[in-house]
Each structure stands twice: as C-alpha cells, then as structure tokens.
C-alpha cells in the first residue's frame, strides 16, 4: 500500500503542470525503515510518525529530518509521500533544510505549492537551500502568502538571483522587509543606486533596511556609493534609518578614515533626539 501511495504522490509531482525542476530520482521504491544506532531512535521515531499524535509525530519528523544520516530520512520521506499533519510537515521540512540530499528533494518538491503557507515556506526553504531553482524562487516572490514570499526573498538574496531583482523592487515598494534584505544582500554599486532611487516610493523603513544591509556587507563598495547610501539614509525618517547607520558605523573600520563613516556618525549625532 505504501508503495502505491508513494507512487501516487510522486505521480502528482511528475504530472502537475507547474512543478519545479526536479533532480533525477529513481522510481520510488518502498522505503524500508532501517533503525541505525546513534542519537536518533529511528524505530521509535518512525512509529511516532505513523501515529495519530501530531506533536509526537512532529518531534519525530524533526529528529529524523535533522539527522545527517540520509538513511534516517527515509521514514520521514515516506510520511511526506503519504500525507501528514501540517505541523509534522513543517517540522520535517524545516529539519531537512540543512540536511536534504538529492534524493530527498523530490518529496520536498511536492510541498513547494502546498496550500498551507507555513508548510510551503518550509518546503521552499529546504528546496532552495539544497537546489537553487531560480524559476521557483521568482515565482514564489509573487504569491499571496507572506511567509512564502519571505522564504523566496531570502533564497533570492542568498543565490544573488539578479533575475529576481524586478520582483524584489516591487516588494520593496510594498514595504516587504525580506525583499529589502535580499536586495541588500545581492546589491552591487549599480543595484544600490537603483534601490536608492526608490526614495519616496518605498516606505522609509523598508528602504533603510535595504540600504543598511548593503552597508553592513564588508565587501560592499566603493566608497563613493557608501557615501551616497549614507546620505540617502540621512534623508529617511524613522528609527530604521538610524539603526542602519549605527550598524554601518559598527562594522566600518576606523582606519583608514572613511568619509561615509564620518557622515554616518554626524547624522547619528544630529538625530540623537529621534530615538
């Protein structure tokens, strides 16, 4: 029966019209649960996963998914393939984010369009951390679930996905902090200027997050753009701009002296009363 169900769900993955690119996965076999010695009691966890106690199943999913041993993932993948409670899914998918192997990705991929936003975000994080799928990430930036967009933005920033920049700029204008952080993480000088041009369009707080994220990257430069961003930040209202300037002052070396740092300090001094 389990074999049949696995095939059914993997069939869904294979036939759904808009599924992400998948790594090659062999035809789904029945997954024997093999208990291995170590910290994870696989047999116990497997039993919990098959039970009706959601909390226990979630705990077991986290244990199995978090195990660096791919063999421990097998019962979890079976659970994913046969449908479990969203709490169990979130726990398992989140655990797999740092440990997923290529063979785990097919099961994870079946959840990147799950209807529950938390599950979907967890699947997207696990999936995009293991295998960067630009199409999936960009598509996920436009969904209506905020947690999913946040996960996608995070992935876009981590992957320095320039194709995602137009979408991220729209989200910046809509005041989405994850998009601001993503832009901050991937911006070069040209993108930094583009982002700075959203002064007056994007909310000040969100723009400050984006510019602050750029300035706190040690390799970000040259100095001319740092100075420009500090000056842009000086025009923004709200504590977020001050946080960004403070963050920059903290990481910027005192020597050799930087004009951008001096100007940031001057702004902070002048706006002490703003906090």
């Amino acid at each position: 029966m389990r074999k049949l169900l696995v095939a059914i769900l993997f069939g869904l993955v294979a036939t759904a019209s808009a599924q992400p690119a998948q790594p090659a996965r062999p035809a789904a076999p029945a997954r024997p649960v093999r208990a291995k010695p170590g910290k994870v009691d696989v047999a116990k966890a497997t039993a919990a996963l098959r039970g009706a106690d959601v909390a226990a199943a979630a705990k077991a999913a986290a244990e199995l998914g978090g195990s660096p041993d791919p063999a421990h993932h097998e019962p979890l993948l079976d659970a994913l393939a046969t449908g479990v409670h969203p709490d169990v899914l979130v726990a398992g998918l989140t655990a797999l984010t740092g440990t997923a192997t290529k063979t785990d990705l097919q099961a994870i991929g079946a959840y990147v369009r799950y209807r529950n936003g938390a599950v979907r975000a967890a699947a997207l994080r696990a999936f995009s951390k293991s295998i960067g799928d630009p199409t999936l990430v960009i598509e996920s930036l436009s969904v209506f679930d905020a947690p999913v967009r946040a996960a996608a933005a995070e992935a876009a920033g981590r992957m320095k996905l320039t194709a995602a920049v137009p979408a991220l700029l729209v989200l910046l204008d809509k005041g989405e902090a994850p998009a601001a952080l993503a832009l901050g993480a991937m911006a070069d000088e040209a993108l930094a200027r583009t982002v700075a041009e959203h002064l007056g369009v994007a909310p000040d707080a969100t723009l400050a997050v984006a510019l602050g994220a750029m300035l706190t990257r040690l390799e970000f430069g040259p100095e001319t753009i740092r100075v420009d961003l500090v000056r842009t930040l000086s025009k923004l209202s709200g504590v977020e701009a001050l946080d960004a300037l403070e963050g920059y002052v903290e990481i910027a070396p005192e020597n050799p002296p930087r004009q951008s740092r001096r100007e940031a300090e001057a702004v902070l001094k002048a706006r002490q009363g703003d906090r």
Binding site: L9, G83, V84
Partner: peptide, 10 residues
C-alpha cells in the same frame, strides 16, 4: 494524489 497529500490537513 491530492487526497493522499491533504488527508491529514485540518
């Protein structure tokens, strides 16, 4: 496939 995947979802 949908039934299997969502059967446990409240």
């Amino acid at each position: 496939a949908e039934l299997v995947q969502y059967r446990a979802d409240p």
